[in-house]
Structure formats: structure tokens, C-alpha cells
Design a protein around this nucleic acid. Sequence first.
DNA 1: TTTAACTTGTGAATGAATTCACAAGCTTCT
DNA 2: AGAAGCTTGTGAATTCATTCACAAGTTAAA
Lengths: 207, 207
Amino acid sequence: MKRIADSTVRRLSAYLRFLEDFEGRGLTTISSEELAKRGGTTSAQVRKDLSFFGSFGKRGLGYSVPELAGRLREILGLEREWKIIIIGAGKIGAALAHYRGFRQRGFSIIAAYDNHADKIGRKLEGIPVRDIEQMEHDVQRERPDIAVLTVPADEAQGMVDRVVKIGIKAILNFAPAQLQAPADVTVKTVNMAMELEGLSFALTNRD
Amino acid sequence: MKRIADSTVRRLSAYLRFLEDFEGRGLTTISSEELAKRGGTTSAQVRKDLSFFGSFGKRGLGYSVPELAGRLREILGLEREWKIIIIGAGKIGAALAHYRGFRQRGFSIIAAYDNHADKIGRKLEGIPVRDIEQMEHDVQRERPDIAVLTVPADEAQGMVDRVVKIGIKAILNFAPAQLQAPADVTVKTVNMAMELEGLSFALTNRD
DNA sequence: TTTAACTTGTGAATGAATTCACAAGCTTCT
DNA sequence: AGAAGCTTGTGAATTCATTCACAAGTTAAA
């Protein structure tokens, strides 16, 4: 398959959200133009994005809302459940555990891991917090798909190495660090300091 | 000034982090090649990024670490303090209030706002939680620069409208919603569901 | 002083993403 | 059945971002 740009995938994800909204309101068809308006893009962009995966619309009419939503879920791999482990049961880990959007979309948090004795054995929003040393063992049985890293920056690379070793192929990283991983492992980093600095830049360099 | 791509600003931000690390270790010069290796990019990219703002290096030698760090801070607008208000004192708001990286970089959280009586009047990591209805009044006096939105998706647009009205020009949004704002207001959205769906896509569409 | 070894800064070339523009298909109305 | 009105899907054109490649500047050593 042709390589799909990251920006395209993000838009598909946004389109799906709008479609679900439309679906909830009982609408049955939608045009690329309407979808574009909601997503802050252009109708040509919407059609081009979808064209990488097939032709889902009807000329003159638009797209069937439930059908297109289904196709997008299929494309994005949301028809199955993905198992997540959270590594680092600090404040961010807790906020994520609490975030209800995950389960809604088929992401199921099965456990959190930490290395602080005072956290191990407790629960985080109903999710068990376990000893990080136990992780390699648990993985045999539970086979998580995605690791979410909420550890300090200086521990992040070490944790990446550990989760890569046990076969995890997708990592969502919240540590402000540039991480190295093999090509077959996808790493996405969310860096709040970087976002804020982007705002600082925008505020500073206005015309 | 020529329009600078978002991707460029993000890299500048990353370079600065590495430079501060180098600075801490007492190194005085660095080449574009070394900077590139740390940032997962190429030396040509580093030089091109910097060239938008001037020529800061010495041929044959590289860049002075403290000088380049200073220049980047200047470019990114980090030489001054930016005042932040957090809107929504829930779990994400709490995690952000707790995050120490902000203050280190000159971002100072002055207050959080919420509409739940049981939160108003308390403190979040030392930051006062105030009634959202008080926001318009407080802003007169405190002049915050950046609003961080951690409210539910269906309240996000309304809050954007409110903070835009009181003159805030930069918004960091954590709600999974596409927001509309005037052109002179910069909005950055951090959407965890979208990131996870990107991972789901990657796991699903591997060769 | 000359040479060798580096490294920057930047036009030119390439590659990637977005936008344009229109033929082709579907629906509805007359 | 024909015409009018929409909207898709997609090559071509354009715009934007990255990479190449090299002249020019600097340092260090002989």
C-alpha cells in the first residue's frame, strides 16, 4: 500500500468524529463540502484523503453517513479492541486513566505500571497499578498492543527499549524527549512544552 | 516576515532543549550534524531552519552553544514570562498544573477556572481555582496571554468565544473538538484520541 | 605560509502535500 | 426522455518542505 501521510490519517480521524456526530443526529448523507467545513479544510482535500482507500461516495449525492463512518473505522483499525498499558502512574497517567474517550473508541486500558512502592497495588480509576518489574511477565499473558509512556524524560528511552523488547509495536509518549525505536515500532510523542513554545512563537512573531 | 512552518518551529524548540542539555554539560560549540543526530533530522535541515532567522554559526567550527541557545530563546519568545490561565479544573487541568516544565520555561500559571461549586475556592497544586464567571473581570487586571482549555468537547467552542472576546490571542486546547477562532488568534489542539487512532492505523496498515 | 580538514549558509533540485478544474455519474423535475 | 443541478473522483498544476551539493569561511597543523 502507498504510504499515507500522517496529516491524512489525522484528518480521517477528524472526519470520523464529525460523521458520528451527524449519525447521532439522524442524518443519512453528507457531502465532502460539509465534511470539509466542519474539519476546517477543503472539499477537494476530503475527497483526495478518501480516494487513497477507495471510492465511497455517490456522484451528485455525497456519502452515506453510516457507510462512510464504517469504512473509516475499518481503515483506522477501530473495529477491534486495542489493549493499552500505561507506564508511569503519576498525574498524567491518572488523567489518562480517567479519560473516557479511550474506552468509547475501543481502547481498553488493562493496567498501569510504576516503580513507587506507595502506588503499586492501588487502583487508578479502577485500573490496577502494578510493579514495573512485573511487566515483562504480565505481557506474556495479556499481550497489550500499545504502551503509553508517562514517565520522566530521563527514564523514557529505557522504557521504550523495554517495551520494544517484549514486542510492543506502538508507543504514545508524553515525556519531553526524542526517542529512538526500530522502524517497525511507531512512536507518537505529545509534548506540551513544545506546543506552548509554538504559541509563544506565534505571539512573539506576529506581523 | 516570511511565514515559518509549524514543523520548523517544533524543531527549533527541540534544538533548544538539546542545546540546554549540552550547556549543562559544559560544552561550548556544536555542529549542525550533532544537533541533527539528537533531533532525528539532517544537518541540512538544521541549517535551513536556522537560516530563516539569520546566520548564527561559524564556518569550519559550528555554533556557540550559549549563543545559539540565546538566539533560539529570543526567536521562540521565551525571554519573557507568559501568563497562563487554565480553564477547566478537572483531571487534565490538575495534571497540567502539576507539570513543572511550564514554569521552568517561563510559563506561569496564574489561575484555573471552573464552574463546579465544589472546586471553586480550592487550590490545584498551589494555583487558585476560581469561578468561571469571574474570568472576564480578573482578566482586566491580570492580563493573561494564553488560555489552556481542558473542558468537555461540547463546551470548548463557547469558551474559545469567551476568551477571544477578552483579548486572548493564544489557546492550547485539550478538548477533542475542531475549534473556530479569528485569524489573529492561534489555536493549538492536543487530541489524545487522535494520536491513539494514528497508532491504531499504523498497527492495522503495516506491510 | 600553505595545506588539510571541517562546517556553515544557501541556491537549485527533488519530493510531498494541497488545490484546481473538469469529465462523469446520479437525482429530480418537467 | 431530456435538461438542470449537484457532487464525486482524479489527473494536472501548484505550492510548500526537505534534501542536495558546493562555494566560501575558519581552524589547526606542518
